[in-house]
C-alpha cells in the first residue's frame, strides 16, 4: 500500500506547524534556529511531493536550491548567535532586549 500525495502533504504541513510553534514558543535562540530549518524542510517535502505528483523534476531541483540557501542562512545565523552570546552572555531571546519602544 503506497503513501498518497495527500498524506505526504499532511506530514509537510504538520512539520511546518511544528516549526512555527517552535519559533513562537521556544526561548533558546538555537532551538528557534532549528525550528526555522524545520519549516524550510517542510517546504522541501512539499516541493518533492508536488514534483512526484506532477511527474517532473523541477520541484526536486528547487529543493537543492533551497538547501543551499538554508545552509547559507544557518551559517550566518550561528555567527549571529555567537556574537550575541559574546556581547551578552546569553542565547535566550527574552534577554536580548536592550531596546524598547
Amino acid at each position: 500500500m503506497g503513501v498518497t500525495v495527500s498524506q505526504y502533504l499532511a506530514v509537510s504541513a504538520l512539520l511546518f506547524a511544528i516549526g512555527v510553534a517552535g519559533v513562537l514558543l521556544r526561548r533558546n535562540m538555537l532551538v528557534v534556529l532549528m525550528s526555522v530549518e524545520l519549516m524550510l524542510n517542510a517546504a522541501n517535502l512539499a516541493f518533492v511531493t508536488f514534483a512526484r505528483m506532477l511527474g517532473g523534476v523541477e520541484g526536486q531541483v528547487i529543493v537543492l536550491f533551497v538547501m543551499a540557501v538554508a545552509a547559507a542562512e544557518v551559517a550566518v545565523g550561528l555567527a549571529i548567535v555567537l556574537v550575541v552570546f559574546r556581547t551578552g552572555e546569553t542565547t535566550n531571546v527574552e534577554d536580548v532586549s536592550s531596546m524598547k519602544w
Partner: peptide, 11 residues
C-alpha cells in the same frame, strides 16, 4: 545593540 539588531532581524 548591533548584535541584538542582527539577531532580531535574522530570526
Amino acid at each position: 545593540a548591533s548584535a541584538e539588531a542582527a539577531a532580531k532581524y535574522f530570526i
